[in-house]
Nucleic acid binder design. Structure first.
Lengths: 129, 129
DNA sequence: CTCAACCTTCCCCTACACTGGAATGTCAAG
DNA sequence: CTTGACATTCCAGTGTAGGGGAAGGTTGAG
């Protein structure tokens, strides 16, 4: 199938497929006589795997590692487990940071909602911050 | 004072101060006879305000708006209130998205921890994802 | 024949907040 | 006089995941 068809099947754009090829996530596609890339069902399965990886918040470099292992004939499952562990820890870390920031901002917001503009000293730019 | 001193007082680098000037957050600094920028205590107060804004997660464009109002002689307090409200809503949104992602990843991780590598079909790349 | 819808390569652009480095000028101390 | 620590300008790069658009080739339908 041609690139547009494969892209549609995977829910991506043709740009993305060429980008993935350039980035080493897809092997260089076979070409038809006219020079067009020619994809198979396997290509679409690979694209769908990439999609699942992205949906889990993995970076393309990590997905590339997994694909590299599989292409080397090794089962990447243990590595995927590690990546998922790290991803979970990263997410917890990011969530904790955002919650800390949220509480700072909530405090400022509460002060701003209860305060009066009149007390604002120009030298301080804005007393609510 | 010279740029290095002002930067140190505000806990920033000289690069950052020049960048802020270029970005319209600081007025073009007065120059000494030798061409060096010359800062005052007010400059440092302004830098500290920028720092507080950044610490609240505001973008430089938003901080620039606040400073612009103050420079125009208006009290930016009402605008700051709006920004804080939006920031709070944005943070809640981001946190909700991360928590949703976290639950997806946690599910995958649990499956990966309990599953067996043997069942992994190469055509699927990795069954854990 | 021509038109539209595909496809190709190539290069630049996006957001964000800086950071690095080159080439050069200024100034006080030893 | 020289050295070192400052300062200046300007240009380019960082990371991420593609997107925009030009200039041109290919194919099927009407």
């Amino acid at each position: 199938m041609r690139i547009g068809e494969a892209a549609a099947a995977a829910g991506m754009t043709t740009k993305t497929l060429r980008f993935y090829e350039d980035s080493g996530l897809l092997p260089a596609a076979k070409r038809s006589l006219n020079g067009y890339r020619d994809y198979t069902e396997d290509s679409v399965a690979r694209l769908e795997f990439i999609r699942r990886g992205r949906a889990a918040g993995l970076a393309l470099t990590q997905i590339r590692e997994i694909l590299g292992l599989r292409d080397a004939g090794k089962a990447p499952c243990a590595h995927v487990q590690d990546l998922l562990s790290n991803q979970l820890a990263d997410l917890d870390h990011q969530i904790a940071e955002l919650m800390a920031l949220r509480s700072v901002v909530a405090g400022l917001h509460a002060t701003a909602a209860s305060g009066t503009d009149a007390s604002c000293d120009p030298g301080r730019i804005c007393s609510y911050l």
